[in-house]
């Protein structure tokens, strides 16, 4: 969620190596994101972003306040996760020669899920209710406190949802043996991190081979600027000014390209079994976010959802 990863804690040198790359990463022609290879400690966390969301943390669960739009975004993005997972389960069931699968509530039952940048825990609670053993992390201590407090009210969540104040990089480095998750989600986080390529590599590492990665973020287009900054922050003041920075927005093609050429999760144009981008748009007259049907033109030029499946072999050769 709109929160952040972690304060600039010292990153162990082993990690540094893991993240280093000799070739600079092109996320787009206008925005060169180099993985800051050998210089300073590598962290995707931006301290001022952390401070920003810590200040707002008490408002996470005010459904009519600062985060109202985010609350309303949660149902369709969970639906997206659910649909995507069911699509896979159906396929696997067909491959096994079974007729049908249980499409009931526990679509993530028996799975491990990681929510990176969980904020107040809007998505984390949903993942846990869908049956996943969920770990939710955030770099802001106050976010984690609010999130834990809120989830403690629902006894259903006690055994399935855990929170930790830790950066994704540290989580990856700290777990030995390396812990990986069936589903990794990082919703509305990418546009707040300092070093998106390093961040994405970390997320990629945290996904089990054959597992699923879900992201949502904002495209860097004039329309997105108009809607998410000019309108939402400056004119209508739905969201505190300074929440978004245009230069940090990332376009869907850039994401696809990164997963193709850097992480090598697929080659060429990804099929629907490899990666997918879906627009998500807000309809003010219905107070509702919708995910328009596949192929609707123009809908990915503002907020969008991204899904990719890590190949069973980890990365393509």
């Amino acid at each position: 969620m709109q929160s952040l990863l972690k304060s600039s804690a010292r990153v162990p040198s082993t990690l540094l190596r893991a993240f280093s790359t000799t070739k600079p990463l092109l996320l787009s022609s206008t925005r060169k994101v180099t993985s800051q290879a050998h210089a300073e400690p590598l962290s995707s966390v931006n301290a001022s972003e952390i401070a920003h969301f810590s200040r707002l943390s008490s408002q996470w669960w005010d459904e009519r306040g600062e985060f109202a739009l985010l609350h309303r975004m949660n149902p369709p993005r969970v639906q997206f996760i659910r649909d995507k997972i069911l699509e896979f389960k159906r396929e696997e069931a067909t491959a096994r020669g079974e007729d049908s699968i249980d499409e009931g509530k526990g679509v993530l039952k028996g799975w491990g899920a990681l929510d990176v940048g969980c904020g107040g825990g809007l998505l984390s609670e949903s993942l846990a209710r869908l049956g996943a053993r969920t770990l939710a992390i955030d770099a802001s201590e106050s976010n984690i406190n609010i999130a834990s407090l809120h989830s403690s009210a629902d006894p259903h969540l006690a055994s399935t949802l855990a929170y930790r104040c830790i950066a994704a990089e540290d989580l990856l480095a700290g777990d030995s043996p390396k812990k990986q998750y069936d589903v990794v989600c990082s919703m509305e986080v990418l546009e707040h991190v300092d070093n998106p390529s390093a961040f994405l590599r970390t997320l990629g590492e945290l996904v089990k081979p054959g597992g699923h990665l879900f992201l949502s973020t904002i495209a860097r287009t004039p329309l997105a600027h108009l809607l998410t900054i000019t309108m939402a922050e400056d004119v209508l003041r739905f969201v505190t000014s300074g929440t978004h920075h245009y230069s940090k927005f990332i376009n869907p093609e850039e994401l696809i390209d990164f997963f193709r050429s850097d992480l090598r999760w697929f080659s060429g144009e990804p099929t629907r079994k490899e990666a997918e981008v879906r627009g998500i748009i807000y309809l003010p007259w219905r107070s509702e976010w919708v995910v328009p049907p596949r192929g609707t033109p123009g809908v990915t030029s503002c907020n969008y959802l991204f899904w990719a499946r890590k190949p069973l072999e980890g990365r393509l050769q």
């Binding site: 009519r64 609350h71 149902p75 969970v78 659910r82 949903s126 509702e288």
Partner: peptide, 21 residues
Amino acid sequence: NKTVLQGGDVGSYTSLLPYAR
């Protein structure tokens, strides 16, 4: 039912909103 399928909190304002709408 939709809220349950989406892992939502059935008593929350956001999840009840479609009913009122």
